[in-house]
């Protein structure tokens, strides 16, 4: 396949995932406006940060009156998991020139990773001497998700400006956290981390600038690692 056809194939295979992503972009846009973030800045954040969960966390903490340092620490911690995606895609892209690796790193989200890694693992009977152009496929998938995220943010910002506050659409953000949390609670250690972090958030609620959230998450991480160690020793 040519570079252009790889790119378009990546776009086509990523497109169905936009159905799942677009509602979050809209919820983010609406919640950002109700937290008092200027629309241009909310849109810029979608381009600069380009990580849905972290953007929702930032908006949620802003609405609760958190300070800059706790917000940076919490979203910085939350995004640390991207190191995992980076590690798992490394074997496929480490041979590429630096400008390609910079571009693909910027576009590396769980949704783009999920599609691209399938392309990398698919065996093709093609000639061995044909150049490997699968990074164009990854680029197409990542670009499609990027464009979908920007457009759904914009839709949320346009739509959000017309929604009355009584609709309480900001409540969709904690509901999103509940849904994602439930999906993640399959392991014992993760359950321990969540339980301790949740209780910690209440115990440290009085700390200024919402620093209690950072303390709660760190304590939860310790609980998770400690539980994992104990389970490994026990069994």
């Amino acid at each position: 396949m040519s570079a252009g056809r790889e790119f378009l194939a990546g776009c086509r295979d990523e497109a169905p995932l936009l159905l799942g992503v677009a509602p979050f972009g809209m919820i983010y846009g609406i919640a950002a406006l109700s937290a008092g973030v200027p629309a241009w800045l909310a849109q810029l954040a979608s381009a600069v940060v380009f990580a849905g969960a972290a953007q929702l966390v930032i908006v949620q903490m802003l609405a609760a009156g958190a300070g800059a340092l706790p917000i940076a620490l919490t979203s910085g911690l939350l995004n640390l998991r991207h190191v995992l995606y980076s590690a798992s895609i490394a074997e496929y892209v480490r041979h590429l020139p630096r400008r390609w690796r910079l571009l693909l790193a910027y576009l590396l989200t769980d949704e783009a990773y999920a599609v691209a890694v399938l392309r990398y693992q698919r065996r093709e009977p093609a000639a061995v001497d044909a150049p490997d152009l699968r990074h164009w496929y990854f680029f197409g998938a990542g670009f499609t998700l990027w464009a979908g995220w920007q457009l759904s943010t914009a839709a949320g910002l346009l739509f959000g400006a017309t929604i009355p506050a009584e609709w309480e659409l900001d409540f969709a953000v904690p509901l999103t956290f509940i849904a994602l949390l439930t999906l993640l609670l399959r392991e014992r250690a993760g359950q321990a981390a969540a339980l301790v972090a949740g209780l910690g958030a209440l115990a440290f609620a009085a700390l200024p600038y919402k620093l209690g959230l950072v303390a709660a998450i760190l304590l939860g991480l310790l609980a998770g690692v400690w539980t994992l160690r104990r389970l490994e020793r026990a069994g």
Partner: peptide
């Protein structure tokens, strides 16, 4: 550590959003 970041963060934020 990375595996526990998301559950810990979402739990702390949910508890805080609902009860703080």
């Amino acid at each position: 550590l990375c595996r526990h970041i998301a559950p810990a963060s979402f739990a702390a934020l949910t508890a805080s959003a609902l009860f703080v």
